[in-house]
């Protein structure tokens, strides 16, 4: 898990999974990296194999944190399965999802 800071954007990468066993660590890690100037959190999911409901909960928690300051969470390039899950759970209305390139 790594972060890159680019102006008002905090980018989170290297996330092989976002599941019950690391969702709390993920949440704490991102919150710790958030600076006052960050208005967007981008989570790069291109190499993420699995996300479960606990991982979703962590993303929603980050979403709520950033919303307070008028920001948003953007999910980058999730796998079709993960994208399908967001769709099933209607969370594609909560997060901005950038599809994986064909």
């Amino acid at each position: 898990m790594r972060t890159e800071k680019n102006g008002a954007t905090l980018l989170v990468t290297d996330l092989p999974t976002l599941t019950s066993d690391n969702s709390r660590a993920f949440k704490d890690f991102v919150r710790g990296a958030l600076a006052p100037e960050h208005l967007t959190v981008e989570v790069d999911l291109r190499n993420t194999r699995s996300v479960d409901s606990n991982g979703l909960g962590a993303l929603i928690s980050i979403h709520k944190t950033i919303c307070v300051r008028g920001g948003k969470v953007r999910l980058l390039h999730p796998s079709p399965l993960i994208e399908e899950m967001f769709h099933i759970l209607q969370l594609d209305q909560l997060f901005e999802i950038i599809p994986r390139p064909l």
Binding site: D52, S53, L56, G57, A58, I60, S61, H63, K64, L89, Q90, L91, Q93, L94
Partner: peptide, 8 residues
């Protein structure tokens, strides 16, 4: 939508 639980 903003609930962190209850989707499993």
């Amino acid at each position: 939508p903003d609930s962190e639980h209850g989707r499993g």
